[in-house]
Nucleic acid binder design. Structure first.
Length: 423
DNA sequence: TCTGGGGTCCTAGGACCC
DNA sequence: TCTGGGGTCCTAGGACCC
């Protein structure tokens, strides 16, 4: 059996842990740039119809009247809270797959003699006691059914229960019959339309299709879901996270920018972020992609969008070199006269540091001067993000010209010592 | 008139997830 | 006026190898 443990309204719950005065009050968390709602707690959801991913400016007035408390997203805080939850789970199972910031699959193999329901409550209780975060637990004979059980736990049980186990054929069939196919993990919009067209409405209907049809129309991905729903576990728990194959970042500017210089500084900043992640996993990248785009929501502005991918002659994780190359790309794709909203960078073709193929004409040292990057990372780890940077990132003051809007960000409660140390 | 067989690597595009 | 960000996996088809 497999359990899926996931935190309820994770971001909103994280905020509430440090603001006990908000217990029982409606809380929502906004996306970057305070653009739309990405998390809402139970109270906020029950208050009124809160559409996720709706632009918040459209409904803000109404929500303020109803007493909803807003937070900008504070990923530093959420990451740390997530780490704490996942560490607790490691006490409950030898096989933990951290699936996302707020959920993990854990294997319950070899625990047949346990009462799994009691075990699930112990997990819930411990996490709440140590972190203040409420979680739901779904248990089933495979990942997809565990996901489904978790969904049922959230929907049909009370706030303090939030546990559901699919451990018999009767329960499995019942769950499948009561769940729409669109609500199954792995079935997205496109497959849902295709399935509805052949008369598949519930998850149970899906399991009655022939394997040949599923395989043909939905590839091996669909086949796995089909098998899992029928009770055959075929997705392994992945306990060792794979190293990343792409590392990218792309954030909207706080306002529209025409000026190439400011866009360059934002771009250089993003490069230094992704290169640091690359070095952390001891890898180098062979491809560097940069893109630039205007605000595609705007009906007034002229639209422009351009992406360019540059193969690097030698794979690297050197921030300074990557900034230099990114700048060249940016000069190539930038066209004056547009209001730009976003610049993005992406590293791909990622390989381990030790496998970099040098070339005949350039010294490898041009690409990876290890000492300098090591010092850079050590200083930033010790004194906080971006303490030491390339001069091309521009001054802190200038950063305010392009950085994200985060009007309602809470303090970084769990990691603030780093910020204090900087002062 | 006849024209092999068995592979790998890479990329773009589609679909999906949180 | 204001509309998120960061990923994964799979397949087909092209290029290339022996």
């Amino acid at each position: 059996m497999v359990a899926l443990v996931d935190c309820n309204s994770f971001y909103a719950s994280c905020e509430q842990v440090f603001r006990p005065d908000l217990q029982g009050k409606p809380v929502v968390v906004l996306s970057n740039n305070d653009g739309c709602i990405i998390a809402a707690n139970r109270e906020a959801k029950s208050l009124a119809h809160i559409p996720m991913f709706e632009p918040v400016f459209k409904i803000k007035d109404r929500l303020i009247k109803e007493g909803v408390v807003f937070f900008s997203s504070n990923y530093t805080l959420y990451d740390e809270m997530s780490r704490r939850v996942m560490n607790i789970l490691k006490d409950f199972s030898a096989e933990v797959e951290v699936y996302s910031i707020d959920e993990s699959f854990i294997s319950l193999r070899g625990m047949d003699h346990y009462d799994l329901g009691t075990y699930a409550y112990q997990i819930k209780k411990t996490i709440f006691q140590y972190t203040g975060l409420p979680v739901g637990v779904g248990i089933g004979p495979g990942k997809v059914l565990a996901k489904l059980a978790n969904r049922i736990a959230k929907k049909t049980t009370g706030q303090h229960e939030q546990v559901y186990i699919i451990d018999s054929e009767t329960k499995r069939i019942k769950a499948l019959k009561e769940t729409a196919i669109k609500d199954i993990w792995g079935i997205g919009k496109k497959h849902c339309i295709r399935l509805n067209n052949v008369g598949v409405i519930s998850a149970f209907d899906f399991t009655q299709l022939s394997l040949a049809w599923v395989r043909k129309n939905m590839t091996v991905v669909g086949e796995r879901i089909w098998r899992e729903l029928r009770g055959e576990a075929c997705m392994p728990i992945i306990t060792v996270p794979k190293s990343k194959k792409m590392i990218g970042t792309a954030k909207s500017f706080g306002r529209k920018l025409e000026n190439l210089e400011l866009i360059e500084e934002a771009c250089a900043y993003y490069i230094s972020e992704v290169a640091e992640i690359l070095r952390k996993q001891k890898s180098c990248a062979r491809y560097l992609q940069v893109f630039l785009q205007t605000n595609y929501h705007s009906k007034r502005d002229k639209q422009y969008h351009k992406t360019y991918t540059l193969p690097l002659s030698v794979a690297t994780n050197n921030t300074l070199l990557l900034i230099r190359e990114a700048k060249k790309i940016l000069y190539g794709i930038y066209k004056p006269g547009y209001c730009y909203k976003k610049v993005g960078v992406m590293l791909s073709g990622i390989i381990p540091e030790g496998q970099v193929q040098t070339n005949l004409f350039e010294s490898p040292d041009n690409f990876t001067p290890p000492a300098l990057m090591k010092v850079l990372d050590e200083i930033n780890l010790k004194y906080g993000k971006a303490t030491l940077t390339s001069g091309l990132l521009g001054s802190k003051e200038r950063q305010k010209e392009w950085e994200l809007i985060k009007e309602e960000r809470s303090p970084r409660y769990t990691t603030q010592w780093k910020e204090l140390l900087k002062i």
